[in-house]
């Protein structure tokens, strides 16, 4: 479903471009959930942003195919419409734009690209209520401006409500578990399973901890270090990392 080959990418910085991804290769098949773990600064978020098409992230080599099409040719919003979802490590606040307005625009923009009719206000609200309930988020929060004044954990939960509403084919979730309390972690874990566990969907979970993986069982675990995948294993690799640390394992 997603095939990344020898990906090299650099980030625009004040001192000029800085190479971050150095020949990253990774393939996730439909129906699978993969976890990516790796030390701080390894390039995990850079990978997520690069796949999302964030301006300032330049690909210097390599390819990414998503569902058979060249992902890198698409504009960021076209990638979303093609079914790619990015769960942000640091969700962005948008003052003055309510969650409801934001998500209805997003859902209908995606539907338009796919040739579907737009959702009416009523249809959209019904869907939003259902997904908010799934993630146990108060509907009142959906009426507030996007992420403004949300706690760290609430922002992460809101990411998952958004994922539920937009119903993507492929989700890259960047530390969605960071900042969640113990109960919220279980709710989010169950939410990810409910929304994304399907033979024609797939997930790339970026995480630092084993805990989320107790709820969302990965098929494969990769270690990303120095901008490349340096080791791949089964779920046991996450346990091993938890006990021994990156230096011993990778």
């Amino acid at each position: 479903m997603l095939k990344i080959e020898n990906l090299h990418a650099e980030v625009a910085t004040a001192d000029g471009p800085k190479p971050i991804l150095n020949g990253l290769t990774l393939e996730v098949a439909a129906g699978e959930i993969h976890a990516i773990m790796g030390p701080n600064g390894a390039g995990k978020s850079t990978l997520a942003h690069t796949l999302g098409g964030r301006p300032g992230y330049e690909i210097t080599e390599g390819s990414v195919t998503f569902d058979g099409q060249d992902l890198l040719e698409l504009e960021p919003h076209e990638r979303a419409a093609a079914g790619l979802f990015l769960g942000f490590q640091y969700p962005v606040e948008i003052p003055g734009v309510s969650n409801v307005q934001f998500l209805r625009e997003a859902a209908n923009a995606q539907r338009k690209v796919r040739g579907q009719d737009p959702l009416s206000g009523g249809e959209f609200l019904k869907l939003a209520k259902e997904k908010a309930a799934l993630l146990r988020m108060d509907m009142d929060m959906l009426k507030r401006p996007v992420n403004v004044g949300f706690s760290g954990g609430e922002k992460k939960r809101n990411e998952m409500v958004q994922m539920g509403i937009l119903d993507p084919k492929f989700a890259i979730l960047d530390e969605t578990d960071s900042g969640l309390d113990i109960d919220a972690l279980r709710i989010v874990g169950d939410g990810i399973n409910a929304i994304m566990r399907s033979p024609d969907k797939a997930v790339l979970l970026i995480t630092h901890y084993q805990r989320l993986l107790d709820y969302v069982k990965p098929d494969k675990v990769h270690i990303l270090a120095g901008g490349r995948i340096v080791k791949t294993g089964g779920p046991e690799l996450a346990h091993q990392l938890e006990e021994e640390g990156y230096e011993a394992v990778a």
């Binding site: 960021p76 919003h77 979303a80 419409a81 923009a109």
Partner: peptide
């Protein structure tokens, strides 16, 4: 915020309008 909106499927001209 512009990229965040794009990542949810909102085209740049609509994102700009919302902002």
């Amino acid at each position: 915020a512009g990229f965040y909106m794009a990542a949810r499927g909102i085209p740049p001209e609509v994102a700009r309008k919302l902002q």
